[in-house]
C-alpha cells in the first residue's frame, strides 16, 4: 500500500526524449503514438523581443498526473477507471466501453485510445510492467540522464520524493481545478 507520485526537476530537462523512448519500449506503446503516454513539451519564451523571458523557455516533461480527485475516474460510467491500491489511476480494459468521456474530462490531455485493446489507456506509472515485476522505479525515471524524475511513495516520510517535496518549492499543473495531481514540478 503506497501512494505513488513523481517529482520533476523539470529545469534540468534537456529534451533528449529518452523517457518517451523508454516508456514506449517498456509499455509497448504502438509506433506512431507520439506524445500519447508521456511527452516532453517545449515552452516558447514568454514576452516580446527583445524583452524575452529566457528562463520561461524550459522543457516540460508531462504525463497523466494520477490525480487524487481524478475527473476521469468520476465520469466513468462503468468504473473502468479506478484507483488501484497504490493510488495509481488505472483503466480496466475489460470494462471500458470507449465512450471517451474520460478523454474529454481529463484536464491534462493524458488519455488516448490504444488501438490493440480499442479502449482508453494512459500512463500507469509502469504498474503493469516494472512495478508488477517488483521493481521500484519507472522506465522514464530509470533512463533519465539528468535525473529530472523522482518516483516514490508520498506516504513514506523517508522516501526520496517526500524529502524532495519537503525541501524544494514545487507546483502542480492546473491545481485550481482541485484535481490534486501527484506530479510535482520542482522550482
Amino acid at each position: 500500500m503506497a501512494r505513488y507520485g513523481m517529482a520533476l526537476d523539470y529545469k534540468n530537462c534537456i529534451n533528449c526524449k529518452a523517457c518517451e523512448v523508454a516508456c514506449k519500449e517498456e509499455n509497448g506503446v504502438l509506433l506512431g503514438a507520439d506524445k500519447h503516454r508521456i511527452w516532453v513539451g517545449a515552452n516558447n519564451p514568454d514576452g516580446v523581443w527583445p524583452n524575452l523571458d529566457i528562463a520561461s523557455a524550459a522543457f516540460m516533461p508531462s504525463q497523466c498526473q494520477h490525480c487524487e480527485e481524478a475527473p476521469c475516474e468520476e465520469v466513468c460510467p462503468t468504473h473502468a477507471t479506478y484507483y488501484d491500491e497504490n493510488g495509481v489511476v488505472r483503466v480496466d480494459s475489460d470494462k471500458c466501453i470507449l465512450c471517451s468521456y474520460c478523454m474529454n474530462a481529463c484536464p491534462y490531455d493524458a488519455r488516448y485510445v490504444d488501438d490493440r485493446t480499442v479502449t482508453v489507456d494512459k500512463c500507469t506509472f509502469c504498474s503493469d510492467t516494472r512495478l508488477a515485476r517488483g521493481e521500484t522505479t519507472t522506465a522514464c525515471q530509470n533512463t533519465c540522464p539528468t535525473k529530472v524524475r523522482t518516483f516514490g511513495d508520498l506516504d513514506d516520510p523517508e522516501s526520496e520524493i517526500s524529502i524532495l517535496l519537503k525541501t524544494r518549492d514545487h507546483f502542480s499543473l492546473k491545481a485550481h481545478l482541485g484535481t490534486k495531481p501527484k506530479l510535482f514540478y520542482l522550482t
Binding site: P77, T78, K95, I97
Partner: peptide, 23 residues
C-alpha cells in the same frame, strides 16, 4: 459511436458508476 455497446449493457449493471452523468 460507443466503442463497446455490449460491454456497456453488462457493466452498467455490474459496476455502475453512479457519479457519472453518462451512466
Amino acid at each position: 459511436e460507443i466503442g463497446h455497446p455490449i460491454t456497456m449493457l453488462i457493466y452498467n449493471v455490474l459496476t455502475p458508476g453512479l457519479r457519472s452523468a453518462i451512466w
